[in-house]
Design a protein around this nucleic acid. Structure first.
Lengths: 216, 216, 216, 216
DNA sequence: AATGAATGAGTATTCATTCAT
DNA sequence: CATGAATGAATACTCATTCAT
């Protein structure tokens, strides 16, 4: 291709393989900012740098696009995550700290965190999808906490504690941070420092879980 | 209207004053379920048992209705709440427990909890309103936790702990429960038992906050 | 209302009861001219003198409008027609003439004739509706011819002739005229004189049906 | 290409010359089934086994394709037909029978019959084309009937009868059968037996035309 | 005050047409 | 020649808002 030709802007470019991901990514951002109904496909297309019609080459409908956005990526991350936690060798307190930290690094601080906020906002409009998300993401995420706590109890490092609600409670501050950064944070209110916030959280969390040492 | 007629048709004997509240209440439910953009005024009117035109007698626009829904009620509850906490006399651990419990009883378990979910979902679309909500509700709510923790530290009951993030962390599990009940819970996934959940939460919370007693 | 007020054009007018018929009538004209897919609802609305949204107050969708257009009116005319033919007292030849003439007057020369053209054009796209039309209109229309011919055969006025195809053949020239006037005629080609055409048709028709008189 | 290759993949051995015809043929079927506006070029391409872009190598636009579909084939058949009728030597009654029969065999029973239905449906949208069709097909087709009737009158075989409408009436049952088979027949209603139908038609037709023999 | 028919700007979706490959 | 990804104008349909009654 001549130098001259390169300068000419092509009216469009073939990107068949890369497109679905690009489109879903643009859509995610807008869905998170404005909600499903509040997002116009025109804007999704514009943000992705394509025409409106192009969206329909890859997704059947706005609903379909939304579902693809939610399903994509989430599950694979969870699996990778599960394997990592299973292999851990150190103390249970450190495992809890690692769990929180890794969750944040791999999900909470990425664009995927927006999906959590999105699902919470749209659960009422996409009940089937909400069920899928609950089963594939929430239940499995909580199971990681459950396993870590159980491990601590079994080793005597943690006090006996009920395992139905405790995982939710351990996860709540991380989830709130994820939600916060995709809602209030966006409109310029109080900024949070994630690392300090999570350090405080894990510190309190471990204190709340550790077995009483006075009796030794 | 004759006395007889009044007895026969009490349903139609609505006072002009009660209307806005009834409409806002119907609107709140739908906004929480479906989001702002996903809610049709037709449905709001139907749920409130009036015609669509009637909505415009009390609210200038859909936006106006939304803002009224958010502003109404929230603030007054907070004030009442603040006074109550200020007057408390017992231990700081018990104050924390009371704070969580009362928050749940007065807000979390009521329809007002939906507003929290709603604001989180729509913060991107109503930034000014989000700022109002942050200032009037979130900041003041967190201040209650901050005050309670500070009180415990001052009395030596709690260990010294940073006060920037800790209140968020104390509140997170309560907020998550509020969000949960207005999102995933609605589509029939895992139900939570609020009392047991909150009991576990306050238990861990207090352990995380108490000063170390081994040194005594 | 003052004279002044009468001059002011109202932005719209309530016509709840009259509307469906007016809309269907406007739609029929356009569907006949341009076909179903070729007709824009904007144009239907414009021809009916209402806004596009108004169409949706009375019909669920374009399909629904189409079906209403076809179903309305047709059947009631047929019933009235059947009763009239049953009561006839004169010769069978005259009955045939009356049948053709009345068909033309009551249906062929009216806007309803357009429905025949429309159904023929759109049978492939509205198969269920085509079946309805076949049963309720075509079969019953043919039955009128069948009955008239049978009556003539029974009285010895007509020669014995098979009754499966003959009714179709008797009706064909009338139907063709109906189709012609709603297709080629509209674009300014050869105009037909219906009365002369039908006189020629009934003349040939009766000659084709009468019993051989040479044997007398 | 080797002889071997030709044997192995004869399907791909398409000559450039055959393409337009194949495309027009696929288009005709769909235009007849669904009408012009209701037919998608995607589907035409799919039925012809080519890509959508290929259509534009042979036709400038959808309109152009439509016109080509109508113009092609029709006229040539008519010419061949005219010559055959001119050369006929037998009785005029037999000529009428031959005319109807041949018309059916050469046009009515083939895919070309669909064009008649199509032109009738789309006359309003393609007025110029409708005029062309009227002049080149309808007028010339009717002229065949006119000539045959005139011939019979001249020889004294047929009674004197007006020649303006009679040809239309003679043709109507054949045309109706052509239309029927491309509309209602396609959706599974009452099937017609063309041969029996046409036999009945020609029988009645000839009786309607023959001169009165009693007077001899 | 209340109604609900009517409006029309706005949005999802389709599909004829183009053009780099 | 042939392809099919990309385009964008066109169109069905929605819904917040208005206003005569």
């Amino acid at each position: 291709m001549s130098i001259l030709a390169r300068v000419i802007e092509p009216r469009w470019e073939r990107r068949k393989d890369a497109r679905p991901g690009e489109l879903a990514s643009a859509a995610l951002e807008l869905f998170v900012e404005r909600g499903f109904a509040g997002t116009r496909l025109d804007d999704v297309a514009k943000r992705a740098g394509v025409s409106k019609g192009t969206l329909y080459l890859y997704f059947d409908s706005k609903d379909d696009l939304f579902k693809a956005v939610v399903r994509e990526g989430i599950v694979s991350r969870i699996v990778e995550f599960e394997d990592r936690m299973r292999a851990y060798q150190g103390s249970s307190a450190d495992l809890m700290r690692l769990l929180v930290k890794t969750w944040w690094q791999k999900i909470g601080s990425t664009k995927l965190a927006g999906i959590t906020k999105l699902m919470m906002s749209e659960a009422g409009n996409f009940q089937e999808l909400a069920n899928f998300y609950h089963t594939e993401v929430i239940v499995r995420g909580l199971a990681l906490f459950t396993a870590a706590i159980q491990r601590g109890i079994d080793s005597g490092e943690f006090r006996p504690i009920e395992l139905q609600h405790t995982p939710h409670i351990c996860a709540a501050p991380v989830l709130m941070l994820m939600l916060w950064r995709n809602s209030f944070d966006l409109c310029g209110v109080e900024q949070m420092d994630p690392d300090a916030y999570l350090a405080t959280h894990t510190d309190m969390l471990v204190r709340g879980l550790l077995a009483d040492k006075r009796k030794d």
